[in-house]
Design a protein around this nucleic acid. Structure first.
Length: 471
RNA sequence: GACCCGUUCGUCUAGUGGCCUAGGACUUCGGCCUUUCACGCCGGCAACACGGGUUCGACUCCCGUACGGGUCGCCA
């Protein structure tokens, strides 16, 4: 599910919750050619993971079912024919125009079937001639509707074409099914993306033709993505992971994603940014909705995710992070909760970063002797060599192999030699991790590595330093 | 191309005629802290698209221009 769709669902949910309303899930599957196996399950899973519980829907029932449009075709047919009877729609026998010519052809359907001889229409219908049902829109006058976000919008009817209501295969179009279902299901607020703004006048005409009250419209600003060249366009796959599933797979927390997208196009009107779903529902209001398109910023999502990660209780972080760890050794698996996760917890922004952060634990990476040069601690290969030569045996002799004990060994050593702690720590870090940056310090890493592996790595460093005495 | 909509720091936004020397957050850049990195803390850079009005006074109201976006499907 695209995050844009999720955000629309989220706002609809928040609006319903904040007003004591009902959140209805309706499946709009009227395009048989685009049916995708498993798509419905993705919708259910996304809604569940995002915490958006619907009050009515295909799986939970309700008074207005069925909630799957492909199961309501008889309803749409009846209503389309009612419109024909009222003179607001008509049968059209024109050939289907394929839409694959590149520059979109100017001007739509010309309405040529409006004035077909009724007897001929009846005969063609009886003969089973393929047809569609079109909405009849007068060329004269204007149509005005009010949107809660964009205000009053007026368009000339002549720019509206006779849109199709019922397709050749008997299925309704999205626009028609929506009007019928929204009315029949008692929908009060139509919350959707602003790309639907320009088709809304036709909705009003349909409601008028039926003699139904018009619902309230809440059109949302679009979510945009930034292109490599700096321009922006409707957020799509080319901009990265834009489906809820892929974001979760990369290690973003569902709560963080929901919080982030809530703020894309809506503002609580104050400086607050971190909200739980319930808090969002309490703060939500259409007055906070913006009109201008919003650019999806992965940097900010990343930051927000890190806030959620840090707020997790230690045990829960360990559990959620575990599947992302890429754990291959039984040893790491065994000490994950107690030793590894605590190191990662304050440093991880996105769970998917973990494998790269701890790869050095499973295997010492190749590293250049230059790593022992460190300005701030005044470390260099010669000093590192001397320090490691001292520290190796000292650690080896020490009975207890825990981070606090090892830390004390290094501290005592530094104190005895009048060294600042950072110097031996740096030499040790490079030796046991082979990396400039590690989650946690040398004592913590050494505890995880264990006595044998730690000493093996120190020996390896010593050998390397001996081979490059002047590096 | 036609129609509709939009335009405050790079990004998300606050601001509804004087409270604005335009606030917050992300990013970025400094500094502090520190056993690296990170976290945390402190601080800096950075915006009202432009031009006309209206008004004592405009980021806020009106008009135009520019730019951006959306729609123009027997897709949703």
């Amino acid at each position: 599910m695209h995050v844009g769709n999720l955000r629309t669902a989220l706002y609809a949910y928040l609006l319903a919750r904040s007003q004591g309303g009902t959140f209805v899930l309706r499946i709009e599957d009227t395009d048989q050619a685009r049916h995708i196996e498993g798509a419905l399950e993705v919708i259910y899973a996304t809604l569940r993971q995002a915490g958006l519980r619907h009050d009515e829907g295909p799986d939970v029932g309700g008074a207005c079912g069925p909630y799957v449009q492909s199961q309501r075709t008889a309803i749409y047919r009846t209503h389309a024919l009612e419109l024909v009877r009222r003179g607001a729609a008509y049968h059209c026998f024109c050939d289907k125009v394929e839409r694959d010519d590149d520059p979109a052809p100017a001007g739509g359907y010309d309405g040529r079937c409006r004035h077909l001889d009724p007897a001929a229409v009846a005969a063609d219908l009886a003969a089973g001639r393929p047809h569609v049902v079109r909405q009849k829109i007068d060329r004269e006058g204007v149509t005005t509707f009010t949107d809660l976000v964009f205000g009053e919008i007026t368009v000339e009817n002549k720019v509206l074409d006779d849109q199709i209501l019922l397709k050749r295969d008997g299925m309704p179009t999205y626009n028609f099914a929506n009007v019928v279902d929204d009315h029949l299901m008692g929908i009060t607020h139509v919350v959707r993306g602003s790309e639907y703004l320009s088709s809304t006048p036709k909705y009003n005409l349909l409601y008028q033709a039926f003699g139904w009250p018009v619902p309230l419209y809440v059109h949302l600003p679009l979510i945009m993505g930034k292109n490599p060249d700096g321009t922006v366009a409707k957020l799509s796959k080319r901009h990265g992971s834009v489906s809820f599933e892929s974001l979760l797979a990369e290690g973003y927390l569902p709560e963080a994603v929901v919080n982030y997208i809530a703020l894309l196009g809506w503002s609580p009107k104050n400086d607050r940014e971190l909200f739980t779903l319930d808090e969002l529902a309490a703060a939500f209001g259409v007055a906070g909705l913006n009109k201008a398109p919003a650019v999806f910023d992965f940097d900010k999502l990343r930051w927000m995710n890190s806030e959620y990660v840090k707020a997790l209780p230690p045990a829960e972080f360990a559990a959620r992070a575990r599947p992302f760890g890429g754990i291959t050794s039984p040893h790491l698996a065994a000490c994950w909760d107690r030793l590894v996760a605590p190191l990662l917890h304050p440093r991880v922004e996105v769970l998917g970063d973990i494998p790269e952060m701890i790869a050095f634990l499973a295997a010492l990476p190749d590293y250049p002797v230059e790593f022992f040069h460190h300005k701030k601690t005044k470390c260099d290969p010669a000093r590192a060599r001397a320090i490691l030569a001292d520290l190796g045996p000292l650690c080896h002799r020490h009975g207890e192999w825990t981070a606090p004990a090892l830390g004390a060994v290094v501290q005592d050593y530094a104190a005895a030699r009048g060294l600042k702690l950072g110097l031996p720590m740096w030499a040790l870090r490079i030796a046991v991790s082979g990396r400039l940056v590690t989650p946690g310090g040398p004592p913590e890493i050494m505890e995880i590595l264990g006595r044998d592996e730690s000493l093996r790595r120190i020996d390896h460093a010593l050998a390397m330093l001996a081979a490059h005495p002047t590096a």
